[in-house]
Design a protein around this nucleic acid. Structure first.
Lengths: 88, 88, 88, 88
DNA sequence: ACGCAACGCATCCGCC
DNA sequence: GGCGGATGCGTTGCGT
């Protein structure tokens, strides 16, 4: 393998490992937060459910937004300067 | 629920959600790096295997450290003020 | 459901249950061995750590083999009838 | 550590590893059975539920058996050779 | 009783 | 689009 290739490979591996370390660190932080919350009497299991639920709701909202934008675009309600052509 | 509890709960949820967003961002970065590497001709499958192997090596080193500590503890070699007789 | 299907289903269930019983039996044997070793003064915690470490070493060997195969495949070194040019 | 201890330790480790290999082998067999069943159109998820359910029912039956034995013992219905004293 | 580790399950993503 | 592999989640059992 060319030296240049070996060097680029090394760079990729390092970037990957750095990112994964940071990810692992965040996972550790999450564990801590859950543990801390538990000490205050909040059930971790329920907390996770809440988080999951809010995530779902956020996705729903985004989908509705997206849908709204599609409708508005279909109706030529954007770039109102020259809405010459509406969707057939 | 007490207002104070509700507030603390809200804080926990927010901390969790922030951490998870950051984690998701890192996951996205990882995807990008793998994709970029692939474009330079590096097989993602092999890259992942390399990363896994290096992680394994690191774990092994850590486990050996841990084992050493256990042996030393079993032999009363810590806080050696009164290292009374060990079993064997 | 066809009689034949029902019969095959029954066979699968029985095979599964037999295997799971055997697995449970082995788990019981393991418990006994650890208990017996403990009676002779061997700390189960250390035993488990030793086992884990040896397993890790074995895994690492296997991963290296796997990696080697991947490299060779990436270099077209298998079924080498027509090993056309590799990227690097 | 005494040589004898080292030898006994080695024996324990080997016994443990043998048992774990066998356990892993059975786990592999189980995977195969589920895969084979899937090829015949049986949903693995459902199969697992069936197995779980049957296990529960077995536990129930055993508990009832156990209860029955306790009752019978309490009533002096065992060792029937000389049932001199029946419960008041 | 508590936290920790192994297991099994569901989900997701990349590959074919 | 289906499949296998990998990752993350939830559950259970074990040791402390």
């Amino acid at each position: 393998m060319h030296d240049a290739s070996a060097e680029r490979l090394t760079n990729y591996i390092e970037r990957i490992e750095t990112l994964e370390e940071e990810k692992a660190a965040l996972a550790g932080d999450l564990k801590e937060v859950y543990a801390e919350a538990k000490l205050e009497g909040f059930d971790p299991k329920v907390l996770r459910q809440v988080v999951r639920l809010r995530k779902l709701e956020e996705q729903e909202r985004e989908e509705q937004e997206s849908l709204l934008h599609m409708y508005m675009q279909a109706l030529g309600m954007y770039g109102g300067a020259s809405p010459e052509a509406t969707a057939d």
